[in-house]
């Protein structure tokens, strides 16, 4: 194992983080923690973009990361507003209790 940190190292780390995030979504039932695991996966993808941009030698990776950041921020805003609105009706943050359409 050569000791130069190549983009492959970053991509491996990103893959591990993505796996942890996906595992979190499957395991946890609290809506907020699931949201945080989605953010974790988005960050892993951002790291992959930057590493790939570095490996290919241009700035497109970083441009893509910029837009992913903005879209993720917008998504968090709307998603949390939805969670707050749901919580007002149901007093529960667990997604399993949302599986009924009534109420």
């Amino acid at each position: 194992m050569s000791l130069v940190v190549t983009p492959g190292w970053y991509m491996t780390l990103a893959a591990l983080l993505f796996a942890i995030g996906a595992l979190g979504i499957l395991i946890r039932r609290n809506a907020l923690v699931m949201f945080m695991c989605i953010e974790l996966m988005l960050n892993a993808v951002n790291l992959t973009f930057v590493a790939a941009g570095r490996a290919l030698g241009n700035l497109d990776g970083q441009m893509a990361v910029f837009f992913v950041l903005v879209v993720a921020a917008a998504e968090v805003v709307v998603g949390l507003a939805i969670i707050v609105a749901i919580f007002r009706r149901r007093e529960s943050a667990s997604v399993d209790e949302l599986s009924e359409m009534a109420g």
């Binding site: 194992m1 130069v4 190549t6 492959g8 491996t12 893959a15 591990l16 595992l23 570095r54 490996a55």
Partner: peptide, 23 residues
């Protein structure tokens, strides 16, 4: 599934295969 994925990643690290993407 998570442990399999994490195990794959660790195997990549251990075998040095991530030099697929050169700098």
């Amino acid at each position: 599934i998570g442990l399999i994925a994490i195990g794959l990643g660790t195997a990549l690290v251990a075998r040095g295969r991530f030099s697929w993407v050169p700098l």
